[in-house]
Amino acid sequence: MSNQGASEVTLEFTLGRERYAMPASAVQEVTEIIALQRVPKAPPVIAGLVDVRGRVITLLDLERVFGLEHETEGAPVALILAPPDAHLGLLVHGQPQVGRLDLSAAGAAEGLIDGVLLASDKLYNIVSPRRILAFCEKQVLEVFRRAAVDDRTIPTGRQA
């Protein structure tokens, strides 16, 4: 916050013990999750489907994306992504907060993380929907591919 002009509004949340931050511009809105509909045979990163004011949103479980197993405390909330990814949402736990961070000061990107930022003695993993969505897409495609192989090689038991 020392450089007011370079800072931008971020949405901050927690996964496990780590702090994460995402540009608020990537998020359209934050909503409660009323009724999560699970998707059969979906990869673990797909948390399920949720109805937000008549729109069906696919929720991606960020904990699963980062290899965690429901370690975060608090009620689940959905971060509905801004267009063009408005049909997707990120499922996180606890209460996200709005803050201001100088994202340009973040370190080099690695894996799913865009960079690491130290601000006000707090360490933030900076993330953006782009890398996450790419990872999830791979996962989904992998599942689809495996399903196609299974369908070819293994006849369903129900036919017998």
Binding site: E8, V9, L11, A24, S25, V27, Q28, E29, V30, T31, E32, A75, V77, Q95, P96, Q97, V98
Partner: peptide
Amino acid sequence: QQTHLLALNAAIEAARAGEQGRGFAVVAE
């Protein structure tokens, strides 16, 4: 919680509005 979410969404909206939304952002905060 709902109020918080509303405030959060208001802040996101304010951020999206840019300079015009700054006062709204303060209220939302």
